[in-house]
Amino acid sequence: MLVLVVDSSTPAVTAAVAEVTADAVALRAERRSVDARAHGELLAPAVREVLAEAGAGPGELTAIVAGLGPGPFTGLRVGLVTAASMGQVLGVPTYGVCSLDALGLAATRGLDASAAPDGEAAGRVLVATDARRREIYWGVYAAGRRVTEPAVDAPAAVAARAAEFAAGAAVGEGAQRYADVLALPVRPEPCFPPADALAALAADRVRAGAPSEPLTPLYLRRPDAVAPTARKPVLP
């Protein structure tokens, strides 16, 4: 089953075609460009390219998987509306995946989930992406699973929480950016939500032909909007 994967929750714009079989997920084509200001320009051509490279027409897709963020709003919406509009035309289900979960899975997959508590703690990884405004989106992961729910906080606050949850390393471009504050060894990879991990997190739904899901962004912040205060008089 061919699946289109898109994620625009970070400065990276990712498009991929993955093949989901009964027991595996394999990428057939992948494009990633890193430019936080050009998500709207880059994503659609990248989707067209990965389809061409996979030798598949849009009509051959079985499902579309999209990273729900959290991520800076404007860019994040590009991936979600692209996935939703394509899903509507093709009549195929869309599935959302938390983008931090994809990083967490890639960062901790392969660790032995049945390890002793000490071993598990040693394998705990802080995943952090840049939320701008000097904040990061973050979560702690172990053995491919969430230890904490996705949240947005200042790096210093995240450093304290990461210590509390015994994270032994950090990944993600948010972690790289605030490495000095986080005081954890930062691994260079994965830096952005990997397409194969996004596909893997939706693979069971793809295989089961689960119902389509609304692609609701994980904003984690309210819009900046303030009700007007009393008007300033114009008379002196």
């Binding site: 998500h39 659609a44 849009p58 709003f73 509306v81 692209t82 394509m86 509507q88």
Partner: peptide
């Protein structure tokens, strides 16, 4: 800008698919 971007990205998704 942000409002335009949703419509343009949607239009591309529709056009592409």
């Amino acid at each position: 800008a942000g409002a335009l971007l949703v419509g343009v990205a949607a239009a591309k998704g529709y056009a592409l698919a």
